[in-house]
Simulated assay, not measured.
Amino acid sequence: MKLLAFAASNSSQSINRQLVDYAVQLLQDGLIEGVAADAVEISSLDLNDFEMPIYSIDRQNADGIPQPAHDFYDTIGAADALLISFAEHNGSYTVAYKNVFDWASRINMRVYHDKPIVMLSTSPGGGGGGFVLRSAAHLAQYFGNEVLASLSIPKFDQNFDTTAGTLADADLDAQLRDALATLSKVTSKVTGDSAAG
Rank of each mutant, 00 (worst) to 15 (best):
S135Y: 13
Q158W: 00
Y93V: 01
L172Y: 14
F160E: 05
F143W: 04
L120T: 03
Q175T: 07
G91L: 07
S44E: 10
H138C: 02
A170C: 00
N145L: 04
V95L: 08
G126H: 10
G30A: 05
I76V: 14
K189F: 12
S152N: 08
E146R: 11
F6V: 03
S184A: 12
P116T: 04
I107Q: 11
T94E: 11
D157T: 07
D58A: 03
S12P: 09
L183S: 08
A136M: 05
A69W: 09
F72K: 07
A78P: 03
G126E: 14
P66C: 04
G34V: 05
A136T: 02
A104P: 11
D71Q: 15
V40T: 08
S92E: 07
G125S: 03
V24M: 09
G126Y: 12
V35K: 04
Q67C: 03
S188N: 15
G30D: 09
I117N: 00
E88H: 11
G30E: 06
Q25M: 13
F86N: 06
D114G: 01
I32K: 01
G126C: 08
R110Q: 08
I57D: 10
V186Q: 09
L83Q: 04
A5N: 11
V95C: 03
A164M: 10
A104L: 13
Y93G: 00
Y73I: 14
P68Q: 05
F131P: 00
G127T: 15
D161R: 06
G165W: 05
T163Q: 15
A39E: 15
D80K: 04
A179E: 06
S184M: 04
Y93Q: 03
G91N: 08
F156V: 04
Q67D: 13
A5E: 13
M119F: 09
S9F: 11
L47W: 06
P68E: 08
L45I: 15
A69T: 10
M109L: 00
T162P: 02
S105C: 05
Y97R: 01
L19K: 13
G30T: 07
R17S: 08
A39V: 05
S12Y: 07
A78D: 15
G91H: 09
A37F: 06
M119T: 01
H113K: 06
H138Q: 10
D157G: 11
V186C: 13
E88P: 12
S11N: 15
E33C: 00
K185A: 12
D58N: 00
S92F: 11
V132Y: 03
N108Y: 04
F160R: 04
Q13N: 15
Y97H: 05
R110C: 03
I76A: 08
A181S: 15
L133M: 02
D173M: 09
A181I: 00
G64M: 13
I107W: 09
G144V: 02
S123G: 14
V186F: 09
F160W: 04
N16D: 09
A170Q: 12
S123T: 07
H89T: 01
S194D: 14
D71L: 15
L133K: 01
H70L: 12
V24C: 13
S135P: 02
S135R: 10
Q141S: 07
N48Y: 05
Q18F: 01
